[in-house]
Design a protein around this nucleic acid. Sequence first.
DNA 1: ACCCTCACCTGCACGC
DNA 2: TGCGTGCAGGTGAGGG
Length: 283
Amino acid sequence: MPELPEVELVARAVGAVVRGRRIVRAELHRAKLLRDATPEDFAAALQNATFTHVTRRGKHILLAFDRPVILLVHLRMTGRFLYLTPEQDLPKHTHAVWYLDNEHRLVFVDPRQFGFMRLATPDTLATVPELTRLAPEPLSKAFTAKSLYETLQRSRRAIKEMLLDQTRVTGLGNIYAAEALFLAGIHPQTVAADVPQSRVRRLHRAIVEVLNEAIAHGSTMNVDPQNVEGSYYGGPYENHWRVYDRAGKPCGVCTNEVQRIVQGSRSTYFCPRCQRRKGQRQK
DNA sequence: ACCCTCACCTGCACGC
DNA sequence: TGCGTGCAGGTGAGGG
């Protein structure tokens, strides 16, 4: 679910409420949530630890403490953090609970149970399997038009599928991959290696733009950990997408109908006029 | 090494 | 109202 911008906003929102808080007790209610460790390990590693900072790598959230422990969390499709007042009941699908020293609880809920956590240390973080193969952060200097071009040149896969591959480009998901391709005017089924360098430069700019735009527009309400029922994409900024989930609706640029196709068993949305295939010509 | 499909789960919107 | 169907924002294992 959440893609890089939402994960970034969740990390900031969680950090804002837990930084400096000590964990009185930590409970893992669903053992399988934690890879390679038990609920007992989880409780022992975090009891009496104080949160120091919350960061992000790709779509992973990294919780750091005043001891050499890093808790890595991936929300996948439906994982959420909530910050509960003492009066609030544990929501359905609560899989982890951190009892804080201010009587509040941080909880992790995940109806589809796709999310996961892993215990690491600052020293072993670089060797954590989920992180080792990730491409550079798209909002860092390491992500350049040149590096993107070189990556795309090495593959005959469709450009849209390449953008979803976290080992090639990190942070994009189904929504922002579609949005970036629209901004760059690239047909999603174009073979990655066939995208000319000038278009890749535009794509690079588009990726940075859609990610930054989403972070800037992300309403606090959407990611407020106290907003138990909230959706990452709901609220006042819902449906601001240019093509995603707009099949049959007019493109905002040319008024043609946005199309939905299936790639790798996932929906892709695009404007057939603004995103023509190489060799396709306007009628 | 690359590329493809399916599996992992629950919830929701839709049509009958 | 109730039930079946298809679909959902993300990977990762296992096959060719």
